[in-house]
């Protein structure tokens, strides 16, 4: 049937060569109009709530404003200078990077491990896949609230277990040396679901035959893992690492619920810092300068990852 109709088109096109040029021009305009009409709603949203505010953030970062966002005067790079001289901001940046360092590799390694063991053909594997994906369905607020209880100095399960082994409890959320690690543990747990799903999907896309022929060549489990699985999974690993690192720079909810940025700013990650400066202290310009730094940070890291990725990633 389709073929029949296709021939119909060509017949029609042959029949009207005279009008062709004119109608082609008109159709071009029609298409442009229709295309923009279909795109309009999405363009409007993206324009108003992403591109415009990004520009506006840049603008704010050079201006003093009042608490409702009205600009008072231009001050150039003053906020950026203050930021780089501020020890609070340095602490906040250090925490942001340390946090990425704590969470990103660990999340990926654990998720990869879980994906590898659920990619084995044993009975009951679908059940375990659901279990390992489950943390994707848990909201930041709910997850952090549960961990708030687990970390509780006297009621928490973690300290109870330590005490049972005769060890003294840890000040999970109130010690400046430990708090960031506690927030990281919570985050790793919450991120496992997403990373697991994507990595498992990647593993399932690797063709069975490769393993078969590797087995015939006498390659053992570990050699298969490092010579077939990891290289062929590299596009997926790459995707996951880009997403996880960007997510780690955007962390907010768990900080707000677990520590409120404390103790001594040790968990004052950049988004939390932006939030506090803008909406508690009313310094829109100062907070916007930090938001621009966040934007640049994401840009740089994505760029580096794509540069490194180009060389290391093995596309099939």
């Amino acid at each position: 049937m389709e073929i029949e109709k296709k021939t119909n088109t060509s017949v029609q096109q042959v029949k009207k060569p005279v009008h062709k040029r004119k109608s082609a021009k008109r159709r071009e305009w029609e298409n442009l109009g229709a295309g923009l009409l279909y795109l309009l709603p999405a363009l409007l949203i993206v324009g108003v709530f992403l591109f415009y505010p990004m520009m506006k953030t840049l603008y704010y970062s050079f201006h003093v404003t009042n608490a409702s966002g009205a600009v008072i005067n231009f001050i150039g790079f003053e906020y950026y200078r203050t930021l780089f001289e501020s020890s609070a901001f340095r602490t906040s940046m250090k925490a942001t990077f340390l946090f990425a360092l704590y969470t990103v590799p660990t999340t990926i390694i654990i998720s990869l491990f879980l994906a590898v063991i659920t990619n084995e053909k044993v009975k009951g594997v679908p059940f375990f896949r659901v279990v390992f994906s489950s943390t994707l369905g848990i909201s930041v607020a709910a997850g952090a609230t549960i961990w708030l209880l687990l970390f509780h100095p006297s009621l928490g399960v973690l300290n109870n277990m330590l005490n049972a082994f005769g060890l003294s409890g840890v000040q999970w959320l109130t010690s400046p040396n430990v708090a960031l690690i506690s927030v990281a543990i919570t985050t790793i747990w919450m991120n496992i679901g997403f990373n697991f799903i994507v990595l498992l999907g990647g593993l399932q896309n690797i063709s069975e035959e490769l393993y078969e022929s590797a087995k015939i060549d006498g390659a053992g489990y570990w050699r298969q893992l490092f010579n077939i699985t990891i290289p062929l999974l590299s596009p997926t690993l790459f995707f996951v690492s880009v997403v996880t690192i960007i997510n780690s720079f955007q962390t907010f909810g768990q900080v707000d619920i677990l520590t409120g940025g404390g103790p001594a700013n040790s968990t004052n990650l950049i988004v939390y810092s932006i939030f506090r400066e803008a909406f508690y202290n009313g310094y829109f310009g100062y907070a916007s300068a930090q938001a621009i730094i966040l934007f640049v940070l994401v840009l740089i890291f994505t760029y580096i990852q794509f540069k490194v990725g180009e060389k290391k990633v093995h596309y099939q």
Binding site: G69, F249, A291
Partner: peptide, 8 residues
């Protein structure tokens, strides 16, 4: 990052 645009 959406968080960078929250103020405007």
């Amino acid at each position: 990052p959406w968080e960078a645009t929250i103020i405007p």
